[in-house]
Design a protein around this nucleic acid. Structure first.
Length: 564
RNA sequence: CGGGAUGUAGCGCAGUCCGGUUAGCGCGCUGCGUUCGGGACGCAGAAGUCGGGAGUUCGAAUCUCCCCAUCCCGACCA
């Protein structure tokens, strides 16, 4: 491909709305252009990279025996109503109507649609197991699109769904996908961290996310040297059991006018936030409950929901707090008799001489001790694990990293096969409901993550497997004769089966080199004065500083070696 | 949805506080010439609804009001 005939609008300056590295570089290197918030056009160079990633995904899915489909983007509301998600999906799902008033969703995911096709086709245990997939655009009305292509309203996802006769089969299908995912990301040159994850609103049991460690990641991962790794939604931690040897003080009621928040309390009592027993009132399925955690920890609503066995959880409105605690928000506590269920975080029992609200306006208790002043009846892990917390497996201190989620696999269970009434006959002619697994990869996001992991101050450094071209050839001929000799080299490479981007523009050498570094094709071939005078062609890899020289005859061979 | 910021040529910015003739600068773009191995130089050009609307005024990029868009932080999220 001749650059003079291609479209690579590289930029020296970055549009002011690009903040994170991958976004800036993808724009500067001419891979993408913004259409509007959360929507991007992929220019030819960017689309080439995207296609390479999709090819890798496709090859590995096919290798794992998954069958590729192409599904409609616009999905009938009936399907969503059947599974119940028409109501539960909320505003993140784009909903549209046709001229007859028929409702549709722009699919944010395809469980229903895929389940629907599959149920029309499979009828017997002989048809299972089967794993189906597609790579297609997904639409999500994100509250806040962000970080360029990492969080957008429209994106390409590879989504796969497995159908098995039983849990044993599901485990096999799940492991096959797990293996495929590892291969996919490895082939893309990405270092991923598989972590345990919560299954979220998709419903289901076992779940693993493939994370790419990155400063711009939107999730926090807890990692332990023993191999335990989980995202913060899911990560457990162990109670320290450290009580120290501070003697128990007497409980005292202390006036605390207008001291409500933890920050206020820290300033008022001049002690650490971990001394406070933060007591928050929630409505779990409409009924008030109190959650008690130490002041330095954040309640993890997912964990709390699980601990309570609730399907719906929200912070209680002020009126309910008033009703339950007989005090305004800010003075709740577990000491006085509370008529609603109370859940204590693991952290609470170890607090000696804690401070907590007295369920009375402008009053707190100090010197509060569990076992004496209140009883921990229902203890659970309901706060998010943080840096330094003890690993649930081995007890060592865990560390925290931020990560971008590029893939997610999980065992869905019977959620869709039941609600959508999928059945097959088993060997005995008995009707059974298949069990599902669900496996996603964010393709665009994977591309951004690769850039996040492969760049330097000059630009992108594509791993060969996803690079838009194999070779970036810089032609530095001036006279028509020289240019003709450069073209010969280009033809030579192309005939040698090498995918070449040839910079034949009339521009200064520095300009061309800078563009080559920015675009980040792994091998650069320079045909310039050393060739015209001494017959030597220069070969350099994007990551290295060494310049290899080659005669015309050996060029293809040398380039192939450098590509490895 | 809360808090903050921004919107002026394709991109990056100045001008706005304190209203006043042809709205500037750098990059990029076009033409000509000189250059030519790490983002060359000279000369000559093209390109702007100053985010939109309404208002104040003799006069608005600049002041007032309303709206829109974008970005950041937060809340939220397979």
């Amino acid at each position: 491909m001749k650059l003079s005939r291609y479209m690579v609008p590289t930029l020296k300056e970055v549009p002011s709305d690009a903040v994170v590295t991958s976004h800036r570089l993808m724009i500067r290197a001419g891979l993408i252009r913004k259409e509007s918030a959360g929507m991007y056009a992929y220019l030819p160079l960017g689309f080439r990279v995207l296609r390479k990633i999709m090819d890798i995904v496709r090859e590995e899915m096919d290798r794992a025996g998954a069958l590729e489909f192409l599904m409609p983007e616009m999905t009938s509301a009936d399907l969503w109503k059947e599974s119940g998600r028409w109501d539960t999906m909320g505003p993140e799902m784009f909903r549209i109507k046709d001229r007859n008033g028929q409702e549709y969703a722009l699919a944010p995911t395809h469980e229903e649609a895929m389940t629907n096709v599959v149920r029309q086709i499979v009828a017997s245990y002989r048809d299972l197991p089967v794993t189906v997939y597609q790579m297609n655009t997904k639409f999500r009305d994100e509250i806040r699109p962000r970080f360029g292509v990492i969080r957008s309203k429209e994106f390409i996802m590879k989504d796969a769904y497995s159908f098995d006769m039983n849990e044993k089969g599901l485990e096999e299908s799940y492991q096959a996908m797990r293996k495929a995912y590892r291969r996919i990301f490895e082939r893309c040159g990405l270092e991923t961290i598989p972590v345990e994850a919560d299954t979220g609103s998709m419903g289901g049991s076992n779940s693993e996310e493939f994370m790419v460690a990155s400063e711009v990641g939107e999730e926090y991962l807890l990692l332990c040297g023993c191999g335990y790794r989980a995202n913060q939604e899911k990560a457990e931690y162990r109670r320290t059991g450290r009580q120290g040897n501070e003697p128990q003080a007497d409980i005292k009621k202390v006036p605390t006018p207008d001291v409500k928040t933890i920050d206020d309390l820290v300033a008022f009592f001049k002690c650490g936030a971990d001394k406070f027993l933060k007591s928050i009132i929630y409505l779990a399925d409409g009924k008030p409950v109190m959650a008690v955690v130490t002041g330095d920890r954040e309640i993890n609503e997912l964990k709390l929901k699980r601990a309570l066995g609730a399907t719906d959880l929200e912070l209680a409105p002020d009126t309910v707090v008033m009703d339950v605690t007989k005090a305004p928000v800010g003075f709740a506590g577990p000491v006085s008799d509370i008529k609603i269920p109370v859940v204590y975080d693991l952290s609470v029992a170890d607090v000696v001489n804690g401070i907590t609200g007295a369920n009375e306006k402008d009053m707190h208790f100090t010197g509060v001790n569990s076992g004496r002043d209140f009883t921990v009846k229902n203890e659970a892990d309901i706060t998010s694990a943080v840096e330094g917390d003890m690993c649930p497996k081995c007890g060592a201190a865990m560390s925290v990293k931020k990560g971008i989620e590029v893939g997610h696999i999980f065992k869905l269970g019977y959620k869709y096969t039941k609600s959508m009434n999928v059945t097959v006959l088993d060997e005995k002619g008995k009707t059974v409901t298949p069990i599902m697994g669900c496996y996603g990869i964010g393709v665009n996001r994977t591309m951004a993550a690769i850039v996040e992991q492969h760049y330097d101050e000059r630009g992108i450094m594509w791993p060969r497997s996803v690079a838009p071209f194999d070779v970036h050839m810089v032609g530095l001929g001036k006279s028509p004769e020289e240019i003709a000799r450069v073209e010969e080299i280009y033809d030579l490479l192309v005939e040698g089966g090498i995918d070449v981007l040839y910079d034949d523009r009339q521009a200064s050498p520095g300009f061309k080199f800078a563009d080559a570094d920015l675009i980040g094709i792994p091998v650069r071939v320079t045909v310039g004065k050393t060739y015209f005078s001494g017959g030597e062609i220069e070969v350099k890899s994007r990551g290295g500083s060494e310049i290899l020289k080659s005669a015309k005859e050996n060029l293809v061979k040398l380039v192939r070696e450098t590509m490895k």
